[in-house]
Design a protein around this nucleic acid. Structure first.
Lengths: 135, 135
DNA sequence: CTCCGTGCAAAGCGTTTGCACGGCG
DNA sequence: CGCCGTGCAAACGCTTTGCACGGAG
């Protein structure tokens, strides 16, 4: 998925084109890492003067609902990243400093769970630390 | 670790004995599952009329600092459970309804991470779903 | 012209903190 | 009798929501 495809998806679902949505998606596409709402605001308010959290949050929510972004939560803060190819199930190494990620192509679910009577609906495997630049 | 050992630890670290602390620890010991602050309040305010979140949060913080409780975060809410034996590294199946947990004795870290240049400081592997009773 | 997207403001939720008092040691 | 633990109240950070206006289609 790239920015154009994401905007197409928006339109096909009845959402309108706006420069701010385009710029938000471009930001996520360019960065390719987890960003918090405040990171998005910081980036966009350079260009848009009155830009506030409301629009950010509302659009993040729209994007996530449409599967354009994927979300995780760290230290009570939601973070979002451009959705990776969903056909390729994987997990992330996440840098606690800059939010950059690396893929982990090993999913522990296969080996881990042999529980009877527990209906699994989801799982989370994340490794935290510091990337080469941030150490 | 049991309640008595936990209270001893508190004393040895210079913290005082209070009924509320004892009851909080007893609750966590009895339940043996993840509880949110509001769950603790709900349980203790039956016995203590003016009981408020302040004490809960402050003591949860103390307990966690001393390693008596372990914490995780789910849906923007901190949850705590009586610390399992720390010698036995493991992860949890967590019921999204009642918070009950089962241990997963397989840790994915060994198999997963062969990244160069990434300094790993922590990891999280949790499986979510519904236990037999809550399905 | 009709809604959707937006900014503004205020509220929401879980959590944290300053203060003064009361109780443990 | 000193200091820690507590309740009260207020503030906090992040997020969500009601409202009215302006811009996309």
């Amino acid at each position: 998925m790239n920015v154009e495809q994401a905007m197409d998806k928006l339109k096909s679902e009845g959402y309108k084109y706006t420069d701010k949505r385009f710029d938000m998606l471009t930001l996520f596409s360019d960065e390719g890492r987890y960003l918090a709402a405040k990171d998005v605001l910081e980036s966009l308010q350079v260009k848009y003067d009155g830009m506030s959290f409301d629009t950010i949050y509302r659009n993040l929510s729209v994007f996530t609902d449409l599967g354009i972004l994927e979300a995780t939560e760290l230290d009570g803060e939601k973070r979002f990243r451009f959705s990776c190819d969903t056909n390729d199930h994987h997990h992330h190494l996440i840098c606690l400093e800059c939010g950059k990620t690396k893929h982990i192509h090993h999913c522990p679910m296969e080996a881990a769970v042999s529980e009877q009577g527990f209906q699994v609906t989801g799982h989370k495997f994340e490794v935290y630390g510091y990337c080469e630049q941030c150490q």
